[in-house]
Simulated scan of single mutants.
Amino acid sequence: MKNILVLCTGNSCRSQIAEGYLKHYTGDKAKIYSAGIETHGVNPRAIKVMAEDHIDISKHTSNNVNEYLDIPFDFVITVCDNANEACPYFPRNVERFHFNFPDPAKAKGTEEEIMEEFRRVREMIKVYAAEFVQKQIV
């Protein structure tokens, strides 16, 4: 079984969404973790937008990357440039992947406009997660 860490700045939106999709796509072939360089709590809009796609992340917690330094990760996926630059060293043969997804928490406008940005980013992450699993998880 593979261990996969998704790392973001605050472990609030992008990494939580990616964790949800990676769990969905890998089933029992991988153990998925998400963490942040900081912890900001799981964004309620991220929970809502994932529920729209029938994935429940309401029980997810916001965790600091330092909590996971002893886990033998096979893959670390950073989902923002800040996390990529601040990612700690993992003392194993870890394959690192990076994609700088837009931060939906920074969206401005009406509630519907903000939710549209969450949906747009969710779809980007969904495609990325599906392709990652297809290529990396046998």
Rank of each mutant, 00 (worst) to 15 (best):
K2S: 12
K2P: 02
N3K: 15
L5N: 09
V6R: 05
L7Q: 05
C8G: 13
C8F: 10
T9Q: 03
T9M: 04
T9N: 05
T9R: 04
G10P: 01
G10D: 04
N11K: 03
S12Q: 09
S12F: 13
C13S: 11
C13N: 12
R14I: 07
R14T: 07
S15Y: 07
Q16R: 12
Q16T: 11
A18K: 06
Y21M: 06
H24K: 12
Y25P: 03
T26S: 12
D28W: 12
K31N: 15
I32Y: 08
I32T: 07
Y33P: 05
A35F: 01
I37G: 01
I37H: 00
T39Y: 00
T39L: 00
G41N: 12
G41I: 10
V42Y: 00
N43K: 11
N43Y: 15
R45E: 11
A46L: 09
A46D: 07
A46T: 04
I47D: 07
I47Q: 10
K48P: 05
K48C: 10
V49G: 04
M50E: 07
A51F: 08
A51G: 11
E52W: 02
I55H: 02
I55Q: 05
D56S: 10
I57D: 05
T61R: 14
T61L: 12
S62Q: 05
N63Q: 07
N64W: 06
N64D: 07
N64F: 08
V65N: 03
N66R: 12
N66T: 05
E67F: 01
L69A: 05
D70Y: 10
D70M: 10
I71E: 07
D74N: 13
D74E: 08
D74L: 06
F75Y: 15
F75A: 03
I77H: 00
V79R: 02
V79E: 02
C80G: 01
C80S: 06
D81M: 01
A83P: 05
N84P: 03
N84C: 05
E85V: 10
A86M: 15
F90C: 08
F90N: 09
R92I: 08
E95R: 13
H98K: 03
F99H: 09
N100A: 15
N100R: 09
F101D: 00
A105M: 10
A107W: 14
K108L: 15
E111N: 14
E112Q: 13
I114K: 14
I114E: 10
I114S: 09
M115D: 14
E116W: 13
F118L: 07
R119L: 11
R120V: 03
V121M: 07
V121E: 09
V121S: 11
R122C: 10
M124A: 01
A129M: 09
A130R: 14
A130I: 06
A130T: 04
E131C: 01
E131I: 00
I137T: 09
I137A: 02
V138M: 00
V138N: 05
